[in-house]
């Protein structure tokens, strides 16, 4: 396997180009495994810098209706957790670091060390864990230290300075700043809370800070990219694949990703 490039290095390269990184999320298995993997390759081709590979879960309590529907459909169609490794291999081969976003029980069930080893073997760069706080993550911190995988924890507008310190100290790769209080999904405006949170987070860490929740257009990507190190887009990309024939969905996905990639290149 070729030397893998980590998320932090990719964000540093973007910073050298005076722009934010585009971090694009899609779940494995939606609308089917093959199309989802192809869709992630298209994200890379169309200008996404880092791919957040989602794993469908039966109880996605941080997700809004668009992602809920997509992952429920993927599960109905037989999506399995191990499919994620097919996706990470493909994304790595396409030239971007894949970070896996998943709910913690899926890792626990597989075994934390075993999951980490399989992730490394399939080119995965690390994990984003929306329902795992560092306080509960001793096993994962040990496994990621052993394997060198990135571990991305979340901070939120409600986080106190003490929490920001605690969470960012545990992160590697970047810090995921949830722009608003709430679940995933497109919002008409991302709001000033995101800017405040990025500033407060930067005050306690040197790690890059990427902003997620609510970004759906090139314009919003430009706005968020003006102050954050990375712009995370999820639901809008999933929506592009929803209720469309695969080829039509993939074309819509490419167009939207190009718009978002343009957005992060014009923000500053």
């Amino acid at each position: 396997m070729t030397q893998t490039v980590g998320a932090e290095a990719v964000i540093a390269r973007c910073r050298a180009e005076n722009r934010a990184a585009l971090v694009a999320y899609l779940p494995v298995g939606f609308p089917d495994l093959k199309t989802s993997v192809r869709a992630m390759e298209i994200l890379v081709e169309a200008g996404a810098d880092i791919i957040e590979v989602g794993v469908p879960y039966s109880d996605p309590l941080m997700d809004g209706p668009v992602i809920q529907r997509a992952v429920a459909l993927a599960l109905e169609r037989g999506s399995r957790v191990a499919d994620v490794f097919t996706a990470t291999e493909a994304v790595r081969a396409a030239g971007a670091p894949p970070l896996v976003m998943l709910y913690w029980n899926l890792v626990l069930r597989a075994g934390v060390d075993r999951f980490a080893d399989r992730l490394v073997a399939s080119g995965g760069g690390g994990l984003i864990t929306p329902d795992l706080i560092p306080d509960e993550a001793a096993e994962w911190i040990a496994a990621s230290d052993r394997t060198g995988l990135d571990r991305v924890f979340l901070v939120a507008p409600s986080s106190t300075t003490e929490r920001l310190q605690r969470v960012t100290r545990a992160c590697r790769g970047f810090v995921y700043a949830a722009s608003t209080m709430g679940v995933t999904g497109a919002r008409s405006s991302v709001g000033s809370a995101a800017r405040d949170l990025v500033e407060r987070t930067r005050a306690v860490t040197d790690l890059p800070v990427c902003v997620g929740l609510g970004v759906s257009t090139g314009e919003q990507a430009a706005e968020v990219g003006s102050f954050a190190d990375g712009v995370i887009v999820g639901s809008a990309l999933v929506a592009a694949l929803t209720d469309r024939e695969p080829e039509e969905g993939l074309a819509a996905l490419r167009t939207l990703t190009e718009e978002l990639a343009q957005g992060v290149r014009t923000g500053r």
Binding site: L61, M62, W104, P130, D131, L132, I133, D135, E136, A138, F153, L154, V155, A156, P157, S158, S159, T160, R163, V167, A178, M181
Partner: peptide, 22 residues
């Protein structure tokens, strides 16, 4: 590991956003 354990069971497996409220 946080407080609120009963032996190995319990804990706080929630989004960071809820920690201040808890």
């Amino acid at each position: 590991m946080t407080d609120g354990r009963f032996g190995a069971f319990g804990g706080r497996y929630v989004p960071e956003a809820l920690i201040p409220a808890l």
